[in-house]
């Protein structure tokens, strides 16, 4: 015969076991992610903060703890405002023209044409993303080479009768970094938007066609509303990655001529590793980290990212 007390003990033991199980699950599932976050985010941030309060430089010796680096950021570094303006132009230009708009156009057109040709074009657009950055930029350097051998100059001179070759690297460097980044950046939007477009039930397009919608009306009333969340996602994600990445610019223009194409992240790099001002680089980098976290949080709230992570509401019978 079991008494109530016995039953209670059994039940409590059950609870204890499920609580233990929950704890193990937590460690198993989230453990790796937490370890990685701590190793590659929390620890570096702490080191960065520590270094930013020192005068660490090329000699790699810390002689004093100081707030001098922050004074430099806010008071004496005159170049910083130019760098920040350029960063805005670069990030929003690339994002607005290529990563979202062009990605969207690619996704819409390649899903509208025949399946085989659509996949082929998307495959071609993905190639540069899969090739090493150095190779990709080498091709660009050849394309915009300021001699008659450069691809752009060949086209301009032979087809449009231009007299002397152009030097785009010095005359239009900002446009060049936006275009070279955008060509690759657009492919991510393209893939995500393509998947989302594929997920729209076909009968919605049929219904719209019968209701009188033409091609553009179908895009406007069916496709774009269904892409609201993917567009938000790509915008946030790409803003962050454009803010922090600079390898294409470094390879293509080295930030020049002079500081003309030095975006913030590259500026940090140049300060720290070219001029050897590690302390100052660390202080600058801290702002990038703060901006990154803030953008991510704003995005989370503003674009309703939580809903993006939920199950789709589209009804399939």
């Amino acid at each position: 015969m079991t008494t109530t007390a016995d039953e209670l003990t059994i039940e409590r033991r059950g609870h204890a076991r499920s609580a233990a199980r929950r704890r193990t699950n937590f460690v198993i599932f989230l453990g790796p992610a937490i370890v990685l976050t701590v190793l590659f985010f929390v620890v570096p941030v702490i080191i960065d903060i520590a270094v930013s309060f020192t005068d660490l430089s090329r000699s790699l010796r810390i002689s004093e703890f100081t707030t001098e680096q922050y004074e430099k950021v806010f008071r004496t570094d005159r170049r910083l405002s130019q760098v920040i303006t350029l960063t805005f132009i670069y990030v929003f230009g690339t994002l607005a023209i290529f990563n979202v708009t062009f990605g969207l156009i690619l996704a819409i057109t390649t899903t509208a044409i025949r399946k085989v040709s659509g996949s082929f074009f998307r495959g071609v657009w993905l190639l540069p993303r899969m090739s090493p950055s150095v190779l990709y930029i080498l091709l660009w350097l050849w394309a915009v080479s300021p001699t008659e051998a450069g691809l752009v100059n060949q086209v301009l001179m032979q087809a449009f009768g231009l007299d002397a070759p152009l030097d785009l690297l010095t005359s239009a460097p900002i446009a060049l970094i936006i275009i070279s980044n955008g060509f690759i950046g657009a492919s991510m939007g393209m893939i995500i938007f393509t998947a989302a477009i594929r997920g729209i039930p076909e009968h919605l397009f049929h219904a719209a066609a019968v209701d009188g919608a033409g091609t553009f009306a179908k895009v406007r009333f069916i496709t774009l509303p269904a892409l609201r969340w993917p567009i938000s996602f790509v915008t946030i994600y790409q803003t962050l990655s454009l803010l922090v990445s600079f390898e294409y610019i470094l390879l293509l223009t080295k930030g020049g001529p002079f500081y003309d194409t030095t975006v913030y992240a590259l500026y940090v790099y140049r300060r720290a590793f070219e001029s050897g001002q590690y302390g100052y680089g660390a202080a600058l980098a801290l702002f990038l980290i703060v901006i990154g976290v803030v953008v991510a949080l704003i995005g989370w709230r503003f674009f309703d990212m939580e809903r993006l992570l939920q199950r789709p509401r589209i009804e399939v019978h």
Partner: peptide, 14 residues
């Protein structure tokens, strides 16, 4: 012509 689809095909965001 007017058509009613098997799955209704109402525009979900309207």
């Amino acid at each position: 012509v007017g058509i009613v689809f098997q799955s209704y095909a109402l525009y979900p965001h309207m």
